[in-house]
């Protein structure tokens, strides 16, 4: 019997070049590209994970970081159940931007939105602590004040990436068996799709899906 499926609309926000698309690439394809091209407008991807006896399908909207695209963001965070607000632990400016996004989300997005604050590029700090420009404590403080999940990640090494999504998945109320009916149509879709790279990560991602 198939597991119940819950869809989660998730949006990524954050300054340009902090690694939003790289986080998605690592999560969806378990891959990394050193000089990832900038995202223009927004990119849409999906990924499934198994959480306990549930399947969670993430509908991921990866937005462009440049300020001039910020006016499009409401379209993507509208109705989102979750958001990753990403900053670069070596760029203080990106943390300021992250604060702005958290504020905007609290003001404009759905009331129950789950927000994860994500400090990316910790691999650089692991190599040389002097590169760190945003203290972990400072970010933790913000997360506590604003009721956010908090992770420090590296899309490059993969550190903590799945944990971010699993953390979000665990906080979202999952569908009970009576709500399964809606989810059953998904199987049809999945059979029809052209395969994206599907990661072989048994514990986390359960293969990419259609839409």
């Amino acid at each position: 019997m198939s597991k119940p499926v819950t869809s989660i609309k998730l949006v990524l926000l954050g300054e340009a070049a902090v690694g939003k698309s790289s986080i998605v690439l690592r999560f969806v394809s378990d891959d990394f590209s050193e000089n990832k091209e900038p995202t223009i407008g927004a990119a849409f991807l999906t990924q499934r994970v198994n959480i306990n006896d549930h399947t969670v399908k993430f509908e991921i909207w990866d937005t462009a970081g440049q300020e001039r695209f910020a006016s499009l963001a409401p379209m993507y965070y509208r109705n989102a159940q979750a958001a990753l607000v990403v900053y670069d632990v070596t760029k203080p400016q990106s943390f300021i931007k992250a604060r702005h996004w958290v504020k905007e989300l609290h003001e404009q997005a759905s009331k129950n939105i789950i927000i994860a604050l994500v400090g990316n590029k910790v691999d650089i700090v692991d190599e040389n602590e002097e590169e760190r420009k945003v203290a972990r404590e400072e970010a933790e403080k913000l997360a506590e004040e604003e009721g956010l999940l908090f992770f420090e990640t590296s899309a490059k090494t993969g550190a903590n990436i799945n944990e971010v999504f699993m953390g979000i998945g665990e906080k979202i109320p999952l569908k009970g068996p009576e709500e399964e009916a809606q989810g059953s149509g998904l199987n049809v879709t999945d059979d029809q799709r052209v395969n994206l790279d599907s990661p072989g990560n048994a514990d986390g991602p359960a293969g990419a899906c259609s839409c």
């Binding site: 869809s7 609309k9 990119a43 849409f44 509908e59 379209m75 879709t189 029809q192 259609s210 839409c211």
Partner: peptide
Amino acid sequence: ANIGNFDNDVDLVHAVVQK
């Protein structure tokens, strides 16, 4: 194939065409 997979039509159309 994806009707019913999305909460709203804006997301459905956007996702389908983009994909």
